[in-house]
Design a protein around this nucleic acid. Structure first.
Length: 561
RNA sequence: GGCCCCGUAGUUCAAUGGAUAGAACGAUCGCCUCCUAAGCGAUAGAUGCAGGUUCGAUUCCUGCCGGGGCUGCCA
């Protein structure tokens, strides 16, 4: 259940009972234990509007809440200038902990998520690690019952493919060259810059490609297939849910582009300027160019075509774009044009959810020692290797296939979690030691907490699913853990609406820490009488929540580590 | 020039207009006859500067200083 929503509604009624017509309870988890479990901050503002004493109003609200909702709170206090602090009752917590299942929304959205979208001209680099954000959001929205349509808007079209295809034509069957797309690209580029005949042919090749010349398209297809197979391998290693069915390549929109320009013209939005077709909007200094002087189209054009398809064909309620923050202006402009031109339904929400850059230790964009791009595939290999070293050192008992599995889960988990646990919009510094640490807000710490709980069940000789009784909530550490377990749903819903997966990370870290505190304070296996089963049940609920939460972030758990 | 984002402990990160700004790493000091010490606890340490709005500002507004990004034919 969404505990916060549940309480907010009830406190809202109490506001009304106390004479507040249009209540905004401003219900939040309490900042400190002494302020109870949840606090309502809305009484002060309401008192201001009604020109009444905030503490008197808060007291009336507290009483109305207690009267209308018996049994929920153990204590409702008025504190400070007019805070209403609610401490939930043990009986209520215990009852609600019967299940921590994720509740599906009664009002699902159809959401198109546009994420990852690598340029197929090159291999995926460290920046594509941030594919994890869109992927986590896709999993979370699905878990909450929304209909998710993943779209991987890969760059498979445009000027640079002329150069690449021309180079491939010359190499013919020597496909070994395509093992390393970075090298291949660099070689093609070198020829393009040095050899004017080759450059001219590259430009003609682009035209041939767009015209649909069969031979050229064959080479292009071959190049794209190889590049996509590199992507598939990365997604596989990284545990990304994108498949070929989610591909929404730029080339798909090639034929729709002239109509985009035509329709913009029909809508009276098109202006020719210096030979290019532009849309000028008052809000923006620069125009959105939809067709170049040479007749070629630009990414704004294909984004418009794609947005159109997403609303017309897919009937999306929300379209969420997860891209680099540097594209923010582009999105603001293209959203504005799409709206003005009527390309997207009024009710459809267009959302750009930008993310920051990944930096090296020097606070500059993350590069290799020699200044080259860091291939994502290499980075992931290194993560697993480093994790293997740590696992061998910390737990030599793990061997063979199990050690491999743990190294993979910990290494990949660490890298993904490092990416997901920071605020989406901020740049962050990539640091192996921090992300692979077993202390602090890291994947290994959370995985360890899960593994430790599994160890309890192995020792107890019972399986976690066999426990069904609701746990009793007695000790302070039990109650703090119980309250937090009940906040899983509201956390997920907040992540879904704000597209901020780091909130889920923060939640899981707090849960794991609080479990460790509970575990230190409350013996489980040696607990007397009925409290043993009760505490085991708390362990089971915690493990389940950790595993589900990590699963929604695309991070694996292991039984032992 | 214009627009956008960001300045929080030594470091890496949090904080929804709310109460005494939270963690982690690092530092110092404790806790294994005890369910994984890969853990738990304690101590010290921070909102760039100046105004404003508000009962209340890290959060909103203005200016300044500092950093990054974007900005009519790449994506």
């Amino acid at each position: 259940m969404n505990l916060r929503g549940f309480l907010s509604e009830r406190v809202g009624k109490a506001f009304r009972a106390a004479g507040v017509d249009d209540p905004e309870p401003m219900l939040r988890p309490s900042g400190r234990p002494e302020f109870g479990d949840y606090q309502a901050n809305g009484a002060m503002a309401a008192a201001k509007r009604l020109r009444t004493n905030p503490r008197v109003l808060a007291t009336a609200i507290a009483e109305a809440f207690t009267d209308a909702s018996p049994g929920i709170a153990e204590q409702v206090d008025v504190a400070g200038p007019g805070f209403v602090n609610i401490t939930l009752s043990s009986a209520f917590l215990s009852k609600r902990l019967g299940s921590v299942d994720i509740e599906r929304t009664p009002d699902p959205d159809r959401a198109v998520l546009d994420y990852s979208s690598p340029n197929l001209a090159k291999e995926m680099h460290v920046g594509h690690l941030r594919t994890t954000i869109g992927d986590a959001m896709a999993r979370i929205l699905e878990a909450l019952g929304h209909e998710v349509i993943r779209q991987n808007h890969v760059g498979d079209w445009g000027t640079q493919f002329g150069m690449l295809v021309a180079h491939l034509e010359d190499l013919q069957e020597d496909a070994a060259e395509l093992k390393d797309l970075e090298v291949f690209y660099a070689e093609a580029r070198k020829r393009f810059d040095a050899d004017t005949a080759f450059a001219d042919r590259a430009r003609r090749t682009v035209v041939d490609l767009q015209r649909g010349d069969e031979a050229v398209r064959g080479y292009w297809r071959r190049f794209i297939d190889i590049s996509l197979s590199h992507c598939r391998a990365v997604y596989e290693t990284l545990g990304i849910t994108l498949t070929d069915a989610d591909l929404d390549a730029e080339s798909r929109y090639n034929d729709a582009l002239p109509k985009v320009v035509e329709d913009l013209d029909r809508a009276g939005l098109l202006t020719e300027s210096d030979g290019a077709m532009c849309v000028f909007l008052e809000e923006f200094e620069a125009p959105v160019i939809v067709q170049k002087r040479d007749g070629g189209y630009l990414y704004a054009t294909s984004d418009l075509a794609a947005a159109r398809l997403r609303t017309d064909h897919y009937r999306a309620d929300r379209v969420l774009y997860f891209t680099d923050a540097r594209q923010s202006l582009h999105f603001r402009q293209f959203f504005a044009v799409a709206r003005k031109a009527g390309f997207v339904a009024e009710e459809c929400s267009l959302e750009h959810h930008p993310f920051g850059a990944i930096l090296g230790q020097d606070n500059r964009p993350f590069k290799t020692r020699t200044g080259g791009v860091v291939k994502l595939a290499d980075l992931l290999d290194e993560a697993v290797e480093r994790a293997r070293g740590l696992v061998e050192e910390k737990n030599p008992e793990l061997t063979g296939a199990e050690a491999d599995r743990v190294a993979r889960a910990v290494g990949i988990g660490a890298v993904k979690y490092a990416d997901l646990s920071k605020h989406r919009t901020s740049d962050y510094v990539f640091d192996w030691d921090t992300m692979l640490s077993f202390d602090g807000n890291t994947a290994p710490y959370l995985q360890y907490a899960f593994a430790r709980i599994q160890s309890i069940f192995r020792r107890a000789g019972v399986s976690a699913d066999s426990l069904e009784a609701a746990p009793a909530v007695v000790e302070p550490e039990e109650r703090r853990l119980a309250v937090l377990l009940l906040r899983f749903q509201e956390t997920l819903e907040q992540v879904a609406s704000e597209a901020l997966p780091h909130l889920l990370c923060a939640y899981l870290y707090e849960l794991a820490s609080r479990f460790m505190q509970f575990y230190e304070a409350c013996p489980v296996l040696d607990a007397p009488g009925e409290s043993r089963a009760s505490r085991l049940r708390l362990c089971a609920l915690t493990a389940e929540t950790l595993q589900r939460g990590l699963g929604l972030l695309g991070i694996e758990t292991v039984e032992r580590m």
